[in-house]
Amino acid sequence: MIPGEFDYHSPQTLAEAISLLVEHGDEAKILAGGQSLIPAMRFRLALPGTLIDINRIDGLSYLREENGHLLIGAMTRESALEESDIVQSKYHLLADAAAVIADPLVRNLATVGGNIAHSDPANDHPAVMLAYGATVMAAGPNGTRRIAIDDFFTDLFENSLEENEILTEIRIPTPAAGTGGAYLKLERKVGDYAISAAAVQLTMSGGTCTAARIGLTNVSPVPMRAKNAEQALVGQTLTDDVIEAAGQAAAAECDPSQDLRGSVAYKRDLTRVMVKRTIRKAMERAN
């Protein structure tokens, strides 16, 4: 499988990259980790005329806490999440996800920014970031802007980045006391996309759930939050019945399609189970 022809640019600065984007318009594709894009190009499903490789731009790969947020540079490799003490000790939901994205070799090249910008509902980070209520930073010819993650995903493989914008950073709020999160994924084998996966971030206070955000992976055409499931939890003591109700709400509000991973009925019910189990794990961590 041989990719089609394209022109390749490797800008040294973000400004240079943005001006290349402006110049080449929709002919151009950003090359980050390339772990989704290059296979697509090898199958000639993607035929960009121009590739703008942002791997040589300094300062896009970092993990640091600042002003109550974890800042993740867009070019941070997935493997860096696994190797980060900050992530492993404080951002459990993210740490859970980082261990099950694709396979360890892919994680050495794949980037957090690429995973989100690709806006594939099968990818793991969209649900994670939805659960965290993250913010995405986008740089374009007119400067940098923030996009709330809830406003980011607009359609299958579509997002609210402008054609000439580059995703540069993801900001995750540092979990407050009493907050816990988890990600659970059922995949057919290592390296597979989820049949269904749930990302849950909960805040507990005196046995009551005071805040909840739930993201779902690969059970909808657009990365989604399970808002009805969240509502079923907030203000409640998380009894088995409440958790079951949240699971059932998620099963009802997700919108999976049938494929080799399973039928719609299976994916819905599996989503119920995954959401329930993830809630329990997040609860344990919140306490």
Partner: peptide
């Protein structure tokens, strides 16, 4: 024997 087949049998 996929998870779905077992799930179906269980349900």
């Amino acid at each position: 024997i996929t998870p779905q087949k077992v799930w179906q049998a269980l349900r």
